[in-house]
Amino acid sequence: MVDTISDPSDDALLDVEGLRKYFPIHAGLSRRVVANVRAVEDVSFAIPRGKTLSLVGESGCGKSTTSRAVMRALDVTGGSIRFRRQSGEVVDIAGLSRAQMKPLRSEIQMVFQDPFSSLNPRMTVADIIGEPLLVNGIDKRQDRVDRVAELMRRVGLPAQFMQRFPHAFSGGQRQRIGIARALALNPSLMVLDEPVSALDVSVQAQVLNLLLDLQDELALTYLFVAHDLSVVKHISDQVAVMYLGSIVELADTCALFDRPLHPYTEALLSAVPIPNPRKRSTRVLLRGEVGSPIKPPPGCPFHPRCAYAQDRCRAEVPRLERTAEGRQVRCHRAHELDLSGVGSMERPV
């Protein structure tokens, strides 16, 4: 019962529409649902093949939950996740069962944040990278070894190290192992959840370069989850800013960084420390804390922290508006505000 939707005008590899994910809170003897944590509330985006969309926001904004829902590591509460298979068929994976999901698993792969805890310390690198091959029916040992060697070379690891255990590798090399494992089954979509945030600065650049190269060579599509806006600027074609479970702004990378339309985007951008001591920024300091996803503030969820909030923002939930340039923004005052982006500056060194 795979739900097939044919929409020839749609060239997106992944098209998420109205995604919702609630986590129920149970209480009492009857385990009655007393409330819901609205982790993801109405999220929509599409990623064209070979492109990168990044989800950014503070912790608790729902960016990781969204990425896990796209992986179908979670059951979703509502909405659709349309994924174009390598066969060309478009499938809504939001409603698929575990068994129905299985054949799609090879096409959507994930790279995790922490290369120290996401690799089994008792397995050799050959077994870690080869396991998805074994699971997917590549039974001949020599075939697997050949493929593992090829994958290791592709991610910049010496293939002669394949019999070693993860502890023998540095953080950057371990992340390369994680990437090789994700690539093993030729996926078309890679979900990257904070893939460089646990790495050293010098190694972070290497892994970002590797991800850019792999995307070029293999026409991979990335859904990138990160909190570091400098990294996001480097890797993304499009950026979606999330706040309390919703996308508040979505735009092409340069447009979003240069001319944000949502006050929250402006505040996020101005909080980024700039590696230039002559440019100690004038901050739009955000006051207070993120609201509760159990009982979000009425009206615009961002209004208690927003410098531009008016009466309307406190009462009315803003709708997601699409601008002429193909941008999306969820703010009553988007058309009248003149917000500042990161601007331009000379780069030291």
């Binding site: 650049a205 806006l229 480097h234 990378t253």
Partner: peptide, 19 residues
């Protein structure tokens, strides 16, 4: 090698070799 909010998207960073 530090990424920067002012840099051009989708460009390779001048990375340090090795770890």
């Amino acid at each position: 090698s530090v990424p920067n909010v002012h840099s051009e998207p989708k460009t390779r960073l001048p990375a340090l070799a090795g770890s």
